[in-house]
Amino acid sequence: MAQLKISNLSKTYPNGVKALDDVSLEINNGMFGLLGPNGAGKSSLMRTLASLQEADSGSAFLNDLDILNNPKELRRTLGYLPQEFGVYPRITASQLLDHMAILKGVTNTKERKELVKYLLNKVNLYKQRDKSVKSFSGGMKQRVGIAQALIGDPQLIIVDEPTAGLDPGERNRFHNLLAEVGEEVIVILSTHIVDDVQELCTDMAIMNLGRIVYNGSPLTVLDDLAGMVWQRQIEKGELQEYEANFRVISNKMVAGKPQIHVLSESNPGEGFVGVQPNLEDVFFAKIGVSETVTS
């Protein structure tokens, strides 16, 4: 059983922006989803946990290891796939993974070669192992990324916005890969795509403006909102009127017309239908911002 305990982590950038504001979390084995809009502070938190950024105050313990003050030890058991994962030019997939494996301490050449082959096969890139990584498509590069994150049986895997830019097929493949990762491992999946968390995670937190606004299981949070979400399709010009009168938590285009979800203890009125809350509703509710989702 592995546990990551984050206590009162704070970080303010020199320009005054509070990236992390007293963040506290307790994360156990399995997939943990960190949900939040762009600029919420997710990447700052990820980078701090990955030993790439200093925190102003607070602490984080992986089991008994104080990870903020012992970056070297942490790195030995860390797998990290950052938001922007680029690759060297003129190097093949095998060569890159081989280099990463050496960096992660797999010094036995035979073991390393086996490992590289295994990983490439696992992410379904074995056939392309001798091709230049620079020529890979976005999805293939991400797979290389996850392959390197898996080197060395890490106890803590941090994956930051991994499916942004992937087509549906690639996204599914990626989810399957992640799901296969061992049960004894902590995987933190940071994303702004609500569906990803819904599909994969057993535990989650919602973050906004550097603060944790919700922490719990995706299912219980739905219970919180049960019976409080009402849906209605409206005309284009009516949005402002509704926003003024009701607590609109989201508004989506469906077949060309806006469809709003409203949070209310009871039925707000004519034309509103009660719906089962989904994670997206929770997300917008907690964030408290009404977003326009247009195509």
Partner: peptide
């Protein structure tokens, strides 16, 4: 600057070397 320009620096820097 190679790692940073190729956007692989975060992965590399987070490795134990």
């Amino acid at each position: 600057w190679r790692d940073r320009e190729n956007k692989i620096s975060e992965v590399i820097d987070a490795s134990p070397f």
